[in-house]
Simulated assay, not measured.
Amino acid sequence: MTPHPPQEPAARPAAVSRQEFDALFERLRTWGRWTPADRGAWNRVTPEHVRRAAALVRTGTTVPLGLPWNTRPAPDNARPALHHMTDLGDVEPPEPATYKDFLGADYHGKGVTHLDALAHVAYRGRLYDGRAAGELTGAGGARFGAVAALGPLVTRGVLLDLPAVLGVDWLEPGHAVRAADVRAAERALGVEVEEGSAVLLRTGRFRRRAELGPWDVDRASAGFHLDALPLLAERGISLLGADGDSDVRPSPVEGVHSPVHALAVAALGVPLLDNLELEALSAACAQAGRHAFLLVVSPLAVPGGTGSPVVPVAVL
């Protein structure tokens, strides 16, 4: 694939002052709401939510939402994942021969599909629930908000397929998805974000990448403007994900490089799914004529881990 020529940074989305951002953070935070606190908004998903989500399965079509394990460096994969063989089947009695391999990844980037746990993001030194990040996170990992505390999530997923709504192949880098866009997508797609829903935003990132080549998504990417977060908070979502990392870039908040991360994870206790492969899900939802489905997310149970590589599965 020929790399796409370096592009100029996209025009900055509607600016929000740091003072306005801090006021929004304080207004949205749900600290002290749940026990256990380090499951955050996943506490919203009750057995009844799971039962209703399971009732969405009609055809049994399963769609994996993870990228292939990404070992190739690129402008959007600065820290490639690792894969190498550790046993090539040298036969030693007794049989059988075995073949073994090693996997490793610095997965909090743009090249690996992963889940951000509540230990991943602190704002002004505080993790979700007001816990002091410096006291609870160190070289040995996190003692609050670790991914092992989350466990699996089975809930109703909602695909906000913005390119399909707008009649385009993809959203250009820097395109900010606002609260009004979320409402318009719900109307156009015949779906509603409900309490406990996992909201997945398709921007068309990987279709654009396939056709134009990779680019530095840290500099410019489509995603949510932070003014969409009050609406999503009001609806009571349990999880937020995207084919990017949910944040529009450049950031609209000076001095805050990932304001959606800060609001979702540190204020609302909503874990994030980053770098989802949503092209097949877009096609499956269009064919089925519906954009709600059963979603299964099962991260690795890593004690002290700030997240996990993951391959979520949608079932229609």
Rank of each mutant, 00 (worst) to 15 (best):
K100N: 12
K100Q: 13
K100D: 15
K100Y: 06
D101W: 13
D101A: 13
D101C: 05
D101V: 01
D101E: 15
F102I: 00
F102A: 02
L103E: 14
L103Y: 14
L103S: 12
G104F: 13
G104H: 13
G104V: 10
A105N: 05
A105R: 12
D106H: 15
Y107D: 00
Y107A: 07
Y107E: 03
H108Y: 14
H108K: 01
H108W: 10
H108V: 15
G109F: 10
G109D: 10
G109H: 06
G109P: 00
K110V: 09
K110M: 09
G111K: 03
G111T: 12
G111F: 04
V112E: 12
V112Y: 05
T113E: 02
H114V: 13
H114C: 14
H114D: 04
H114M: 14
D116P: 00
D116Q: 03
D116R: 01
D116S: 07
A117R: 10
A117F: 08
A117L: 13
A117K: 07
A117G: 06
L118M: 11
L118P: 07
A119C: 02
A119N: 05
H120G: 06
H120D: 09
H120A: 14
H120W: 04
V121Q: 02
A122N: 11
A122P: 00
A122Y: 06
Y123N: 09
Y123W: 03
Y123I: 04
R124C: 04
R124G: 00
R124F: 11
R124Y: 03
R124P: 02
G125E: 04
G125W: 06
G125P: 11
G125H: 10
R126T: 08
R126P: 05
R126N: 00
R126V: 07
R126F: 09
L127E: 06
L127W: 09
Y128L: 01
Y128S: 03
Y128G: 04
Y128W: 04
Y128Q: 02
Y128A: 01
D129W: 01
D129G: 02
D129K: 00
D129S: 09
G130C: 10
G130H: 04
G130M: 12
R131G: 06
R131C: 04
R131M: 08
A132R: 08
A132F: 06
A132Q: 07
A133Q: 05
A133Y: 05
A133R: 13
A133F: 04
A133E: 10
A133K: 02
G134C: 07
G134R: 08
G134M: 07
G134N: 07
G134Q: 10
G134W: 01
E135S: 12
E135W: 09
E135V: 13
E135G: 13
L136N: 11
L136E: 11
L136C: 03
T137I: 15
T137K: 13
T137L: 15
G138D: 09
A139D: 14
A139V: 14
A139C: 09
A139E: 15
A139S: 15
G140E: 11
G140C: 10
G141A: 02
G141K: 01
G141I: 00
G141S: 05
G141M: 00
G141R: 05
G141P: 02
G141C: 02
A142V: 05
A142M: 05
A142F: 11
A142Q: 01
R143S: 15
R143Q: 09
R143L: 10
R143I: 09
F144G: 01
F144N: 01
F144M: 08
G145N: 03
G145Q: 08
G145H: 02
